[in-house]
Design a protein around this nucleic acid. Structure first.
Lengths: 201, 201, 201, 201
DNA sequence: TATGAATGAGGGTTCATTCAT
DNA sequence: GATGAATGAACCCTCATTCAT
């Protein structure tokens, strides 16, 4: 039965799925994937156990869904933001993107924690880097293309970009979640300075 | 009766503890903490299940013990090595340490894998960085002291060292365990070049 | 309003019930009763889960219905066939009935399999025998009456008939479904020979 | 640790295993395999759920164990009994074996019910027949050998034996468990008479 | 009538921990 | 000290049945 408008039932369904996703996100963030049981997720969502399996095949599926959804959300916002700014300088553009991501993650620290607890290092390698590799929306490609198109002079652009990403994600994670070696806002100028150094030929 | 030398019984005890630690390390590395059962650990160690609890309070204790033990072992070797080299230049010294650590981890990839599977980001922050923070033996302190003593000109030495550590650990982990963006031996020159850039005032 | 003819709605209802019965039969035959879920039955029938409960109280009811329906169908055909043949000799008549049933079951092996998977011995006793006991249409009675009417000389006709049924059902089941000790067509002459021996006073 | 005598622990273990087997046998007999849960088995045995898995891999293993054990027990007794009798006539020997088995099953009706509920027809074909095929102790082989050795005149001995087994198992099952068409003791003479007829060339 | 989302009891199985031997 | 049998809570998952739409 195809409906063009949302029926009460369909609204209920969407609501339940959202509740389950929210609960899973919160619990995965708080206690990690392995330590979170489906019983806890459904309790927190206020639905029955069987209901979980109406929406997700198993625990792995809800995790995967969350990672994809959350990371797409992240990059979608970054792209929108950068497009608006109309920045000319490549260096400035990089910094602008990073600045936006940092500010976003600062506001959504739980996203950072979720990522860190669910992108198991053992499987994927460093977490933020990996999220960037999931970047289905092409932030990375965009940058590489720009380097080509504008004939920007960077020695080994791939390696350099890679290192910038690793440095940034590693430093930002430490700074935001643990305040080490200092709060992110204090750390920013130093980070951007170092990034510019890495970009210099 | 107090014994000053190791009795046969005491040797047996130590041997059993070592067997348990080795088994746990191997299994935690291979399958991760959660996925390793105590049954498997004791089977592999060739002792009975109850024996495990004579040596460790629970599974978490043996994990914690292993992390501390393995990281200390790592830095002990780094210090010994660096001391022998009698390097004058500070930059060269930093590179030498990093080079040593990289070579060591390359040879002991299982240590890197163990770290990645057991230093859950969520609890401790970035993995290798965290290991460095556990550096109870003072490699970091040593370097900071040297900067002071020798009046080496680095702006914000703490921050710079921190960033070098983050960049290095993140990049090395990715390169050794996944070969991304390239094998560690190929990556080394680029990494050292970038590190030198970060060290320049 | 009472209708003497079948309305479209009533036809639809019957059609749905038939679809459900066919689906259940197929699935019970293929996978057995316990292993078949109502979800599978309704999927296969192309109706909603709730619809099932409009036609049948529960899973057990549809199973029971199927057993009764299928066995009646079997004997109805047997009776029709035997009536047409106008056989005089009692022995020949018995053999003719059995021959018809064997041929029918050979053509409808799925019926045999369904019986075997759903007439749990534990509840009803030997399977084919039990089907015969459900013989609500009186094949057995018919034979017993004939023995009486025609003054046929068989010692203990009830017991003899019973044994013939048991022997036949047991042997036929084994032969058709597993080909043991040989295919049914090869086995037939031996079986009929033995049956004649059992009939001899 | 190899012990030559039974320790208390070992006795306890054996006792637990026996309790589990007895409970499973009773419940499988009463309600069938599929309908019996492990929870019920352990409740009935008075042990914890986990204990079950110390002794058996899963539900299927305990079932298999029971079938093998019980059928071996059955045939062992039959062989012992027949050997003692020193019967010459082949016909008499067959009847003696059957008579013994009937008497044994009459005394252990639950064994018959267990067999019928657990040797799923769907998989193995007729139940008692199948048990005979599990006859790892060779009653069947013994008979076939005897026919050869003594030059006994039976047309198609394999088929004849097969039919005797099918007839007997089918009739005995019905008679013992349901009293149909009459109690086994009354039925016996008729059965033996029919068997003798089947054996006649 | 027909639907299918929701339920939650119950299934089999694993495993950290305890304790009598 | 050392053992390993025993425990039972907790795990993930299935499914017959109900009921609001």
């Amino acid at each position: 039965m195809i409906k063009e408008y949302k029926t009460k039932t369909m609204e209920n369904k969407e609501e339940k799925e959202k509740k389950l996703l929210d609960s899973a996100f919160e619990l995965f963030t708080e206690k990690g994937f392995k330590e979170t049981s489906i019983q806890e997720i459904v309790n927190h969502a206020g639905v029955a156990k069987g209901t979980f399996y109406l929406y997700f095949k198993d625990k792995y599926e809800i995790q995967d869904y969350l990672i994809t959804y959350k990371s797409n959300q992240l990059f979608l916002k970054a792209i929108k933001h950068v497009d608006k700014l109309k920045i000319d300088s490549f260096e400035d553009k990089i910094i602008a993107i990073i600045d936006y991501l940092i500010d976003y993650l600062k506001e959504h620290e739980e996203l950072l924690v979720f990522i860190s607890k669910n992108l198991s290092l053992g499987v994927f390698g460093d977490s933020l880097t990996n999220l960037l590799h999931r970047d289905s929306l092409g932030v990375l490609e965009m940058l590489k293309k720009e380097i080509d198109d504008k004939n920007i002079k960077i020695a080994n652009p791939e390696i350099t970009l890679f290192m910038i990403i690793e440095l940034t994600s590693s430093v930002v994670f430490s700074s935001i979640t643990m305040g080490k070696p200092m709060p992110i806002d204090e750390l920013k100028p130093y980070l951007y300075e170092k990034i510019r150094k890495l970009l210099v030929d």
